[in-house]
Design a binder for these strands. Structure first.
Length: 853
DNA sequence: ATACATACC
DNA sequence: TACTGGTATGTAT
C-alpha cells in the first residue's frame, strides 16, 4: 500500500537503488527529487547496470513464487492453515513476557562524535566517510536524503554543502568503550551488536534497583570529568555547556519523551538528578549517564524481547526511548501495525517478496501465514510466524566464537596477472596476521573476486588440515586465483576487488573441529520465547523455498530444536586434582574474608568514587561476562548492591554448594564434583556455540552500514580473544584495579613469546615459568593470600553503592592497552595455538571461576 | 563442500 | 574519479 519505495513511480526504477528513507530523521523528504538525482548520478554506470541485473533476478524469483502460489489449492491452504494454527498455539504457550530487554543505540554515532569534537560541524550537514562511501550522516544531512551506505559523490549532489569527514575509527572505539562501561552497570552480560549499539537484559537490574536508596539513583550533570581515573582525554567541555546536549538535532522530537518525572533542577549549580526505580527511569538514567559521560545521546527501546526492543529503540530516535508494556495485548497491538521491513532480518529482498504477496505489515504476516508457510522455507516462515506473534529472543547472550575471518579490498582496476597475484599475497599476509592474533587455524580458504562490472564470485578450497600462515593461505588462494585466471581464458580478469577468507576453524592443538554443540544449550535455563515447540511440519512446500530471512532470526525455533536432546552428560573427569582443591580453598578463604569484613562501608564518593564492592562477588558475575567474550568492562562492574545475596545463590555460603554456576553460560551445574564442573566449563569455553542472535533493525538505523562496522568487528574479535585466551587477564585486572588504578598501565602488557601456552599468575601478573599446574597453583595461592587481604582492607565498599564507572573504566583501559599491545605484537600469551590450548584453557577460566565463586 | 544471495552494521 | 568491509547464514547444487 503506502510504501512506495519499491513500487515507485510507474517507471519502476530500481527498488534497490532508490532512497531508503525509513530511517530516523528522514521523514517527509522529497523522495522523487532525491531519487531522480540518485538515478542521474548512477545511470549508465557499471554499478547501476549490475544492480539492474540483480533486481531482475529478484523479480524472477518473485515470478516463480507467484507461479507456485497460483498452484496452491484451497485444500492445501486449509491444511497449512491448520498446521499454522497448531504452531501458533504452541508458540503462544511459550510466550515469555517476564524479561525486560533493552536495545540501546547511539544516535548517528560516528557523525555525532565528529560533531562533538568539532563544533564547526554542528550546524552543518555532514557525514562520515569518503567520496566513495559514507558510513553515516548527521540529521541535518539526512534532510537532504544523505544517509549511510550512500556514496559520497552522490551525497554531494544531493547536498552540495555536505561536509564529509574521514572516518576515525579509533575515536569511535574509544567512545564505545565508554558507553559499554555504563552498559555493564545495568547488565554485565550485555551483548554489543556494534560499536554503538547493544542489547541488555534489565530484568535483574530492576529487581535489585527496587531496594536501592535514592543516593544510588542519583547522578550528576557533567561537571569536569567522568571518573577519577580521568586521565582520559576527555573532551571536557566548559562547565556552562553542561546542559547542552550535543546539538545534533535541531528538532529533537523525542527529547520530550523523557519522563520529566525526576526533579532535575534546571539550575546550573552542582546539578544532579534522581532517577526512579521503574525500567523507564533506569533506562533514562543509563542514557543520561551516557550523555553526561560522552556528550552524545542514545536512544533505547524497552520490550519483552529483543526483536521488539530493537524496533522500539528506533521509535523515538534520536535521543528518546520507548517502552512497550509487557502484555500480550500491547505486543500484539504493536506488532500489527509494524511494517515488515522494520523487523531485523527482513531486508530489501524479503520485503519485496512479501509485498508481492500483499504483505507489508506484520498484521498481514499473520493473516497470510498459511500461504507463507507454503511459499517459503521452513526456517523462513517459522521466523515470520514468530515475528507475526511479536516473539523474539528473551535472553541476551554473549558473542559467539567467530566462524570465519576475512579481508578484502577494492581498488582501481587490476588486470595484470602478476599484480593480481601479488595483491592476493598481500591479502593473505594481512589475513595471516589477523589469524595469528587470535591464534586460529582454518581449513577452508575462500577467494572472492569482483570484476569491474561488479559481478562477484567466490572460489573455495578445503584443506585436510587447518592453516594459518601466509604461505599456507596463499598457497591455497593462489591456486584458486590461478584457476580463475585460466578459466577466463585469453582475456584477463578485470578486477575491482579481491578478498580472502578463511573458515572451518580447528583448534590449534589437535586439529579437530572446534567446539561442538552442547554449548548452545547450556543456557537453557532462561527459556527462549518459543521453547519446546516445533514439530516438524511436514513440508508441503510446493515451492523451492525462497530464501528469505536471515539466520539470526530463526532464533528460538531452531535453537529449540537443537536444544532438544541435549543431554548434559558430558562432564567427565578432568585431570587437575590439586588445582581444584586449591581453588576451593581459595574460594572459601575469600568468602570468609568477605564476611568478616562485614562488607559495609560507605562509598567515599563524590563523583565516581571507585568503589569496589566485594571483589569476589561482583566478579562472580563479571568474570562470567568477560568469559563470555568481551567487555572486560563488565568484568567487574561493581553495580550489584547486594552481591552477597547473589553470591549465596550460587552456593557461596562459605562452602561449596551443591550446584555450581558456570561462568560461561551461567547455568547452574548440578554437581559438586569439580571435575564435572570443569568439564562443563571446558566445553562452554571451547565451543560457546550458540545461535548467533543478532537482531538488527532492518534498515532503519543502519548507520554504520559501512566501514564503521568492520571496526566493530575488530573490537569484538579482540574481545573474544580476551575471553578465550586471556581469561586470566580479567582477573588480573580486577585485582590490579583494586590495588591501584594507576598501575594498570604498567601491569597489563603481560606479553610472552609466541611459543606455547604461558601461565600468568592472575594475582601478581607475572608470567610463570613452570608449565606445571601444581606449581602454578601454589604460586597463585601465595599471591592470593596477600591480595585478598589487601584488597578487602583497602577497597571494600558498601554493598549499596551507586555503580561506579571507575573500576570498569580502568579495566577497559587495561584491556585497551593490552589490545594495543597485541597489535603491537606484544601479545600476552599467543602461541600458535589459539583456541586456548587444552592446558591453558583448562586452567585459565577455571582458575578465575573458582577463585571468584 | 561449494557457490551465491541476503542481511546487518 | 565514482558505490565498502567484515561476518553470519540461508538456499541450492
Amino acid at each position: 500500500m503506502e510504501k512506495g519505495v519499491a513500487s515507485s513511480k510507474g517507471e519502476g526504477f530500481l527498488s534497490r537503488m532508490a532512497l531508503n528513507d525509513n530511517k530516523a530523521g528522514m521523514e517527509g523528504l522529497d523522495r522523487d527529487r532525491i531519487n531522480k538525482i540518485i538515478m542521474e548520478s548512477s545511470k549508465g554506470s557499471r554499478f547501476y547496470e549490475n544492480e539492474l541485473k540483480r533486481e531482475q533476478q529478484v523479480n524472477q524469483r518473485i515470478e516463480k513464487m507467484m507461479l507456485q502460489k497460483a498452484k496452491i489449492t484451497e485444500e492445501q491452504l486449509k491444511k497449512a492453515q491448520a498446521q499454522v494454527e497448531q504452531m501458533v498455539a504452541e508458540l503462544e504457550r511459550s510466550r515469555d513476557l517476564s524479561r525486560l530487554i533493552v536495545h540501546v543505540d547511539m544516535d548517528a554515532f560516528y557523525a555525532a562524535v565528529e560533531m562533538r569534537d568539532c563544533p564547526e560541524l554542528k550546524d552543518k550537514p555532514m557525514a562520515v566517510g569518503s567520496m566513495s562511501m559514507l558510513s553515516t550522516s548527521n540529521y541535518h544531512a539526512r534532510k537532504f536524503g544523505v544517509r549511510a551506505a550512500m556514496p559520497g559523490f552522490i551525497a554531494k549532489k544531493l547536498c552540495p554543502n555536505l561536509i564529509i569527514v574521514p572516518i576515525n575509527f579509533d575515536k569511535y572505539r574509544a567512545v564505545s568503550e565508554e558507553i559499554r562501561e555504563i552498559f555493564a552497570d545495568y547488565d554485565p552480560q550485555f551483548q554489543p551488536m556494534s560499536l554503538d549499539e547493544a542489547y541488555l537484559d534489565f530484568t535483574e537490574h530492576l529487581e535489585r534497583r527496587q531496594s536501592w536508596p535514592e543516593s544510588s539513583r542519583t547522578h550528576r550533570f557533567r561537571t569536569s570529568s567522568t571518573t577519577k581515573g580521568e586521565d582520559q582525554m576527555d573532551v571536557s567541555l566548559e562547565p556552562e555547556q553542561r546542559d547542552l546536549s550535543p546539538v545534533l538535532f535541531e528538532d529533537s522530537p523525542s527529547s520530550s519523551t523523557c519522563s520529566p518525572g525526576s526533579e532535575a533542577d534546571g539550575a546550573s549549580g552542582g546539578a544532579f538528578e534522581v532517577f526512579g526505580t521503574s525500567v523507564e527511569e533506569a533506562v533514562r538514567e543509563m542514557r543520561f549517564r551516557i550523555e553526561q559521560k560522552t556528550t552524545l545521546t542514545a536512544s533505547a527501546g524497552i520490550a519483552p524481547n529483543t526483536m521488539i526492543a530493537k524496533v522500539c529503540s528506533d521509535k523515538n530516535k534520536p535521543n528518546g526511548q520507548y517502552r512497550l508494556p509487557s502484555t500480550r495485548e500491547a505486543v500484539m497491538d504493536f506488532i500489527q501495525r509494524l511494517p515488515v521491513r522494520k523487523v531485523s532480518g527482513i531486508g530489501k529482498v524479503s520485503e519485496k517478496m512479501l509485498n508481492a504477496l500483499g504483505v507489508s505489515s506484520c498484521s498481514h504476516l499473520g493473516q497470510q501465514m498459511a500461504l507463507l508457510s507454503m511459499l517459503f522455507s521452513e526456517t523462513a516462515w517459522h521466523h515470520l510466524l514468530e515475528v507475526s506473534l511479536g516473539l523474539g529472543s528473551t535472553h541476551i547472550q554473549r558473542q559467539e566464537e567467530r566462524k570465519s575471518m576475512s579481508t578484502e579490498r577494492t581498488f582501481k582496476e587490476l588486470s595484470k596477472v602478476e599484480e593480481q597475484f601479488s595483491f592476493c599475497k598481500e591479502l593473505c599476509e594481512d589475513l595471516a596476521g589477523d589469524m595469528k592474533k587470535e591464534g586460529l587455524k582454518g581449513k577452508t580458504v575462500t577467494l572472492k573476486l569482483k570484476n569491474v562490472n561488479f559481478e562477484v564470485k567466490s572460489r573455495a578450497l578445503t584443506l585436510s588440515h587447518g592453516v594459518s600462515t601466509v604461505d599456507e593461505i596463499f598457497a591455497a588462494a593462489k591456486d584458486l586465483l590461478k584457476t580463475e585466471i585460466d578459466n577466463e581464458g585469453p582475456q584477463p580478469l578485470r578486477l575491482r576487488l579481491m578478498g580472502v577468507r578463511i573458515s572451518g576453524f580447528v583448534s590449534s592443538d589437535d586439529k579437530k573441529p572446534l567446539q561442538r554443540s552442547i554449548i548452545g544449550f547450556l543456557q537453557q535455563g532462561k527459556a527462549d520465547s518459543s521453547q519446546g515447540m516445533h514439530q516438524k511440519l511436514e513440508k508441503e512446500h510446493l515451492i523451492t523455498h525462497s530464501s528469505l530471512l536471515p539466520p539470526d532470526s530463526l532464533s528460538s525455533a531452531q535453537k529449540c530444536q537443537r536444544q532438544e536432546g541435549v543431554t548434559w552428560g558430558r562432564g567427565l573427569e578432568t585431570g587437575e586434582e590439586p588445582k581444584q582443591s586449591f581453588f576451593q580453598r581459595a574460594q572459601a578463604k575469600r568468602l570468609r574474608l568477605q564476611e568478616e569484613n562485614a562488607i559495609t562501608q560507605e562509598e567515599g564518593h563524590g563523583e565516581n568514587a571507585s568503589v569496589i564492592t566485594s571483589i569476589g562477588t561482583d566478579a562472580e558475575e563479571g568474570v562470567g561476562t568477560s568469559t563470555k567474550a568481551h567487555s572486560t568492562a563488565s568484568d567487574l562492574q561493581e553495580k550489584d548492591p547486594v552481591p552477597l545475596a547473589e553470591a549465596s545463590t550460587s552456593g557461596c555460603g562459605l562452602t561449596v554448594s551443591e550446584s555450581l554456576t558456570c561462568p560461561v553460560c551461567f547455568e547452574q551445574v548440578e554437581t559438586t564434583d569439580l571435575n564435572v564442573f570443569n568439564k562443563h566449563i571446558d566445553q562452554c569455553l571451547s565451543g560457546a556455540s550458540r545461535k548467533p542472535n543478532q537482531y538488527t533493525i532492518s534498515d532503519t538505523e543502519s548507520e554504520l552500514d559501512l566501514e564503521g562496522d568492520h571496526k566493530e568487528c575488530e573490537v569484538m574479535q579482540s574481545n573474544r580473544d580476551d575471553l578465550q585466551e586471556h581469561s586470566l587477564d580479567s582477573l588480573q585486572t580486577v585485582l590490579l584495579i583494586s590495588d591501584d588504578n594507576e598501575t594498570l598501565t604498567s601491569g597489563q602488557p603481560q606479553s610472552c613469546d609466541d611459543n606455547g601456552p604461558v601461565l600468568i599468575c592472575p594475582v601478581c601478573q607475572l608470567t610463570q615459568d613452570s608449565d606445571d599446574l601444581t606449581v602454578f597453583n601454589h604460586h597463585v595461592d601465595l599471591c592470593l593470600n596477600q591480595e585478598v587481604l589487601h584488597e578487602l582492607r583497602g577497597h571494600t565498599s558498601s554493598p549499596i553503592n551507586p555503580p561506579s564507572a571507575l573500576s570498569s573504566k580502568a579495566i577497559d583501559r587495561a584491556r585497551l592497552l593490552s589490545t594495543q599491545a597485541n597489535k603491537g605484537k606484544t601479545k600476552r600469551r599467543d602461541s600458535p595455538s589459539s583456541p586456548p590450548s587444552k592446558k591453558a584453557k583448562g586452567l585459565g577460566p577455571h582458575t578465575i571461576d573458582k577463585f571468584f565463586r
